[in-house]
């Protein structure tokens, strides 16, 4: 059942055992790494992620930037001759990463995803302006994208007031089940 959550984060061996069947077919051809749009800025390549999972070193994966740089574009899965869904492997690793572990350089990306989901919790839809402002404030990058922000504001692309699902407060408890 989808609602059956594991209450505790799985231990390293347990996590590896869960992921290993998915990556069992890998023969390190490197198509995933060759096609990855962000392979150039990753600290380890997708094929290395797969190899670390195969040898059970998931703790090591938690300390990579790659874990949070993956875009989830699906190029690796689509081109993998063995149908390995590396994006899913990475997503599950992200979910298992304890909050205290991980590279400080990519904490902001993790933060962004959490803020995004927080937006959904709030009103069922994402309020882009609120999300962007909150993210840039929290990560102290207020000035980083000011030119882009001005360009977008001038063209009235962002809505000032959030849109919401009318009955959201009543139904969100069903969707965000307590873990």
């Amino acid at each position: 059942m989808a609602s059956a959550h594991l209450d505790e984060l799985p231990a390293e061996a347990e996590l590896a055992a869960m992921l290993q069947p998915e990556v069992a077919g890998c023969y390190q051809c490197g198509k995933c790494s060759a096609g990855c749009p962000v392979g150039g800025v990753m600290d380890i390549l997708p094929q290395q992620v797969v190899q670390l999972v195969r040898v059970g070193k998931t703790e090591e994966l938690f300390r990579t930037e790659t874990l949070w740089l993956c875009l989830g574009c699906g190029t690796c899965r689509s081109r993998c001759p063995n149908g390995i869904d590396i994006g899913r492997v990475i997503d599950l690793l992200r979910q298992c990463q304890p909050a205290s572990v991980g590279r400080s350089t990519v904490k902001d990306i993790r933060r962004f995803h959490q803020l995004f989901v927080g937006e959904i919790w709030q009103r069922g839809r994402v309020y882009e302006l609120g999300l962007l402002v909150r993210y840039k404030m929290l990560t102290a990058k207020v000035w980083e994208d000011l030119p882009l922000a001005l360009r977008i504001m001038r063209r009235q692309k962002l809505r000032w007031l959030p849109s919401r699902v009318g009955t959201w407060r009543k139904i969100r408890g069903q969707i965000f089940r307590r873990r």
Partner: peptide, 17 residues
Amino acid sequence: GWNCCGGSSAHAVDTTL
């Protein structure tokens, strides 16, 4: 009453969600 699909973030945070 449609709601957000989860974008490119929800799947990174919680598969079930």
